[in-house]
Design a protein around this nucleic acid. Sequence first.
DNA 1: AGCGATTTGTACGTATGTATG
DNA 2: CCATACATACGTACAAATCGC
Lengths: 261, 261
Amino acid sequence: MNNAAVNAAQNVFQVLQMPDRSGRPKYQRLADVLVEAIRQGIWRPGDRLPPEEELTQLTPFSLGTVQRALRDLSEQGLVVRQHGLGSFVADPPRELQDPWHCRFVNDEGEVLPIYSQAIARVSVFERGPWSTYLGPQADVIRVDRVIIVNDEFRIFSRFYGDRKVLKRLWEMPMDELNGANFKKVIVRQCRLPITEVTHFVRMQPYDDEACIRMGLAAGTSGMFMYAVAFAGKERCVYYQEFSVAPNAHSLKFPETTVSSV
Amino acid sequence: MNNAAVNAAQNVFQVLQMPDRSGRPKYQRLADVLVEAIRQGIWRPGDRLPPEEELTQLTPFSLGTVQRALRDLSEQGLVVRQHGLGSFVADPPRELQDPWHCRFVNDEGEVLPIYSQAIARVSVFERGPWSTYLGPQADVIRVDRVIIVNDEFRIFSRFYGDRKVLKRLWEMPMDELNGANFKKVIVRQCRLPITEVTHFVRMQPYDDEACIRMGLAAGTSGMFMYAVAFAGKERCVYYQEFSVAPNAHSLKFPETTVSSV
DNA sequence: AGCGATTTGTACGTATGTATG
DNA sequence: CCATACATACGTACAAATCGC
């Protein structure tokens, strides 16, 4: 590690020197600090974190505590530990590179092409389902998009995230937020690998704006989906809603790997 | 604990006294032994396991090792640990009691109770979407069921599988194919571990029988889901369709653990 | 309400094993 | 073979939750 990196690392762990008021255990505070540093880009995917021994010097914690923090992060998939080599920031999974919530397939199982365009970006002050996931003190921004599937039908989507986490998504020019870029910005910006996604589907009347955006009569009912993406078990990265216009195709959900027992 | 139980516990941990040849770490060996004992019914769901301190006496392991074994089991969901109370064998999760695919949640995120009943079991000679998955020469059987969610609305389901693979499902008395047993038979019989499940959802008019079974007017449209379960990457174990009557709840899909690479 | 006994939760320090380069 | 770095394990201590008296 060069000097600048050493300094950065020292700054990262500075907060741990102060007496704790949160009541959270030390191993969790260390894990939090590491995640925050990864999020800030101090260590990037593939980078090696300081070894355990060094962390015991950089922090006021013992080896056991350091090990537990790293093991927890490793179990959450944010860190990969390799015996004899070191602990590394995990790479963002491949599926994240491409559209992943809205995969429609035709009867032959082929994925239909989609095109998306951002149409609005606003601050969100009211509370809603997203608050549960993003946390009460999140500084929520929302990006509205229209997704056109196979030139056939439309989806109206609202994407909710924390402004701090998705800084660039908030700052960049709207017209650069087309489909491909949108994902790229999220992946690049949030840096944390998305390790878990949960999907929900229900039937409900679309709201007025959704109807307009999809070119449907007001009050039309149909499929409504939302997805919640996590980095690790706890940290929600974003919450996203999809109003799906009536259509003849099937929405395919990602394969679920069933854990044994 | 009474004497019989003490003896049982001593027998359970007997193997740990012998020198290990497997090379597995002690905390895993202890966890294995506990799981095996639970599987054998020595401790049943809700039972309290011996406290940590007692386990250090029953086994040749230290407190830290005992704690790690219990913590791992707790993270796997097999054991519930309660501060100041003890460690208990977990109740089997609701989701595993019956169809894995029909988890409806209310606004608070709680899983709604379901009850299912088999209503027909037939041989299938025609081809359909299931043929793609089960293979052209599969000897297909079909089990139709009605699933009642939260005493509120109904789902009509058709389950397709290979008669040879699910022999007992075909042979056992129909009236024993209630919800709990259905799943149990599949798990027991098929023996192959289901490792991957893919879900598809679309909107479509329900077929006539589905409408009747769900108590809806003929020709009603709504949510139609199907799920394909695999053992390994290739071998399809079953194909299952669900016609979901209109309702106010959200269908929750299993968390997708996004794999790296 | 208080107090002790029980039991899990966190943390430390140390020692040794094992994979990697 | 050696240095590095993660993995397991032990023993100890104290904190915090729960229950019964």
